[in-house]
Amino acid sequence: MSTGLLIAIIGALLSTIVAGLGSAIGVQMAGKAATGVVSERPELFGKLLILQALPGTQGIYGFLVSVLVFVELGFLSGSPESALETAKGWAFFGACMPITIIGLLSALYQARMAVYSIQMTAKQPDAAAKGMTMTVLVETYAILALLVSILLVTNII
């Protein structure tokens, strides 16, 4: 295995690990806020579940980029590029960084928005959709980061 391949793999792992970490913490934060509300108003469970799940997408995006890197590196077809140049390895690593970093941060910030929206929904159940929309706005930047990562990853080799 070449150093390049190793570096590329580390990059791919980071995007799943770090973005997933952000989502896990984010979903947990929103979940904590939601349990408090559900204990008082169980009928809001459905709406709050959606709000709770919102910060979970970044983890999926990170995972998506990892899989794309694996596809590009030929892991899934069984013939890995064992002689990947070091420079290309770094290119893969760099391509994973947007979703790794922005995924982590946007999940955490989106979780805060989700918490506020959950509190708003507790007081005003009809406003749930508005809360969802405002919370989803944060995700825009994770999506942009994901796009940059995808476009880079799929064009290196």
Partner: peptide, 16 residues
């Protein structure tokens, strides 16, 4: 540009 999420979402469900 915001519509790029269509790509992102269709890809993420496809990849999973």
């Amino acid at each position: 540009l915001s519509y790029s999420r269509i790509l992102a979402l269709s890809m993420s469900s496809g990849v999973i």
